[in-house]
Simulated assay, not measured.
Amino acid sequence: MVHHLLGDLLDETLTRTPHYNYNDADLMGDLISFRNESVQAKMPERVSCMNPVVSTEIMTMEALVDRTMLRQQNATSQKNRFALPLDTSKNIEVLWITCEKGHVGPDDPHGPEGYNWIAKLSKNRIAMRWYDNTVLLLDRKNRSAVP
């Protein structure tokens, strides 16, 4: 299954200048290929995951973000810090991914060591934790899609 990068979202409570901007040209339009045997993408932080292992968990997006994304000191509490296109207080399916060899994005600043998450937002859209407190929005595409 191939997903096309639709946009990247930043923590709206961030008080410093992040590495990425909203809908950053370095990320927009990139493809991430998810297969049983690998996850691959040619992005600024290259994704090369061989033999991914996936476990699932049901939780709210608010709980997921609070648990795994860097929260700024003295930041006011905000329910949907990334302005995600969903009700962040409703339960969603979260996929925790680790790789037998390689990596599929960050496992820090928080969360299970060696694991990154993908949140199922709908049948054809996912959100994926990315570097520097960024969340990627991806839409499902057919296998012949080009960046």
Rank of each mutant, 00 (worst) to 15 (best):
M1T: 10
V2D: 09
V2W: 01
H3T: 05
H4L: 12
H4C: 06
L5N: 02
L5G: 03
G7D: 10
L10G: 07
E12H: 06
T13V: 06
L14D: 13
R16E: 11
H19E: 14
Y20D: 15
Y20L: 15
N23M: 02
N23L: 02
D24I: 11
A25N: 14
A25H: 11
D26C: 12
D26K: 15
D26N: 15
L27P: 09
M28E: 10
M28C: 04
G29R: 12
G29S: 12
D30L: 13
R35N: 14
R35Q: 14
N36D: 14
E37S: 15
S38N: 14
V39Q: 03
Q40W: 14
K42H: 14
K42D: 15
E45D: 15
E45Q: 13
E45G: 06
R46H: 09
S48R: 09
C49A: 09
M50V: 12
M50C: 03
N51Y: 08
P52V: 02
V54H: 01
V54Q: 04
S55H: 04
T56V: 01
T56M: 02
E57F: 00
I58W: 00
I58C: 01
M61E: 02
M61H: 00
E62P: 02
L64R: 00
L64S: 00
V65N: 10
D66R: 13
D66G: 06
R67F: 00
T68Q: 08
Q72R: 05
Q72G: 08
Q73H: 13
S77V: 12
S77Q: 12
K79M: 11
K79V: 13
N80D: 11
N80C: 01
R81I: 14
R81L: 12
F82N: 00
A83L: 07
P85N: 06
T88I: 15
S89G: 08
S89V: 05
K90G: 01
N91S: 04
N91L: 00
I92N: 02
L95W: 00
L95G: 01
I97P: 02
T98P: 07
T98I: 03
T98M: 09
C99T: 01
C99P: 07
V104K: 05
V104Y: 13
G105T: 07
G105R: 09
P106S: 13
D107K: 03
D108R: 08
P109Q: 09
P109H: 06
P112W: 02
G114R: 07
G114P: 13
Y115V: 05
W117H: 04
I118M: 08
I118W: 03
L121G: 03
N124E: 10
M128D: 00
M128F: 11
Y131N: 15
D132H: 11
T134V: 06
T134W: 09
V135W: 05
V135C: 10
L136Q: 05
L137N: 01
L137M: 14
D139A: 05
D139P: 01
R140H: 08
R140Q: 14
K141C: 08
K141T: 12
K141Q: 11
S144Y: 10
S144K: 08
A145G: 06
A145W: 11
V146G: 10
V146Q: 15
P147T: 07
P147V: 04
